[in-house]
Amino acid sequence: MCSKMIPMTTIDVNLVMFLLIIPFSVLPVFTVADHLFTFCSNDTGNYTLNSPYERNLKSLLETLPSITSLTGFNYTSVGESPDKVYGQALCRGDVNSNSCQACVEQAGQEIINDCRNYKDAVIWYELCQVHYSFQIMTSMSVYTGKNPEWNSQQKLLSDPQHFSGVLMYLMTSLSSEAAFNPSKLMFATGTIKFRNETVYGHAQCTRDIIPNDCQACLTTALTELKGCCSSREGGIIVSRNCNVRFDLYKYYNGSSYLLTYPSHKGSNWKIGMVALAVCASVVVIVIVIGSCIVCLLKKRGQQRGVERSHQALLKELACPRGVTMTDEGQLVSSEDLPFMDLTTISAATENFSENNMLGEGGCRKSTCTA
């Protein structure tokens, strides 16, 4: 049994090529054309065209790309004072050497055209930034955060209040990671879940500053990020020494760790309310039961008092209180009646004389007149 070979047409070839291209089209595409912002400092003075300062500047911008591509960061200088030029270039931590070099090259060409005659300028791209100045950059601690126009183009969210808390938790964690974890080389990425979405973010500092300065720069940048973009699907803040960004798609290359937003704050409040309600119910029940017990005991006490009164009365009737009698039944003493013996009574009545009988007025019948 043999099979028939079917010739592949031009349409089939194009279809195969299309299917091969699709998987790669969904991967992040790094382009150097994503210009974000250019800052030309007006208060640092100008240099003269074709001056030694300009020649040193051009030489600096020519050497930055190749050196920066090796490690992703470079800080150097060219020339001697007073025409010495300091330069700094930083590529995003996930960018490969080729993309890094291409970005720094284009940034150098752009900045010298946009900021001609300026002795201090910074330019930011999606994948890199370039900064030159007439003064040492490590002594420049002034924050120069910028809010690119790109931010206003991002879509608004339906629930910005809840999203803001989740976003700031992610970005604050990344800021600490970038500043204080030496293995990160001052670049940290991470993700966090928000409902059915995944939020991607990164925080980065230039490597010529200390961790505390990095943290301070990122903290200020996050304040601006929250103000401009916490109600949007994406946002970015750039500065001389740090930058932060987030989006709802994976815009960077490589892996990143997933953070979990601590929802225990809301849970604690709910648990506290439930516990309070339960405790209140228990207290009410205890009060009701206690009141019933008190009433029952009081009622029983009254009944017992009545019973005791009846018993006491019967006992008094059966045996009068304070009466002493002999075995023959003769009264000896009584607490209620005065007791006198027979001799005393006989003497007092003159041996029970009729003249001393009660009701007779103390006189004899023979001598009393009507």
Results as ranks from 00 to 15, higher is better:
residue 313 L to I: 12
residue 293 I to A: 10
residue 76 T to M: 08
residue 50 N to H: 09
residue 295 C to N: 05
residue 125 Y to H: 10
residue 227 G to W: 03
residue 110 E to L: 03
residue 198 T to K: 14
residue 134 F to N: 13
residue 278 V to A: 15
residue 230 S to E: 09
residue 58 K to S: 05
residue 187 F to W: 01
residue 214 C to S: 09
residue 38 T to K: 06
residue 88 Q to T: 09
residue 126 E to P: 00
residue 288 V to E: 06
residue 201 G to I: 02
residue 93 G to T: 12
residue 94 D to A: 09
residue 203 A to R: 06
residue 161 Q to N: 15
residue 71 T to G: 09
residue 353 S to H: 08
residue 98 N to E: 12
residue 216 A to N: 14
residue 142 V to K: 05
residue 204 Q to T: 07
residue 111 I to H: 12
residue 91 C to P: 13
residue 200 Y to D: 10
residue 254 G to Q: 05
residue 200 Y to P: 14
residue 204 Q to E: 09
residue 92 R to A: 14
residue 5 M to G: 05
residue 288 V to A: 09
residue 88 Q to V: 02
residue 357 M to D: 07
residue 7 P to W: 13
residue 358 L to K: 11
residue 78 V to K: 12
residue 184 K to H: 03
residue 251 Y to L: 01
residue 14 N to M: 14
residue 158 S to P: 06
residue 314 L to Q: 14
residue 148 P to I: 06
residue 337 L to K: 07
residue 33 A to F: 03
residue 138 T to D: 07
residue 320 P to R: 01
residue 131 H to A: 04
residue 28 P to L: 02
residue 12 D to T: 15
residue 300 R to H: 01
residue 199 V to R: 07
residue 189 T to H: 00
residue 222 L to N: 10
residue 39 F to S: 15
residue 149 E to G: 14
residue 155 K to F: 14
residue 143 Y to Q: 08
residue 218 L to W: 01
residue 1 M to D: 13
residue 143 Y to H: 10
residue 138 T to C: 02
residue 260 T to G: 00
residue 93 G to M: 08
residue 278 V to H: 03
residue 298 K to P: 04
residue 229 C to H: 02
residue 85 V to P: 03
residue 18 F to H: 13
residue 32 V to E: 08
residue 366 S to W: 11
residue 169 Y to K: 15
residue 186 M to Q: 12
residue 6 I to M: 11
residue 199 V to C: 04
residue 18 F to M: 13
residue 145 G to E: 09
residue 321 R to Q: 09
residue 154 Q to E: 12
residue 279 C to W: 00
residue 153 Q to Y: 13
residue 333 S to C: 02
residue 342 L to N: 05
residue 261 Y to G: 06
residue 149 E to K: 10
residue 367 T to K: 04
residue 327 D to I: 07
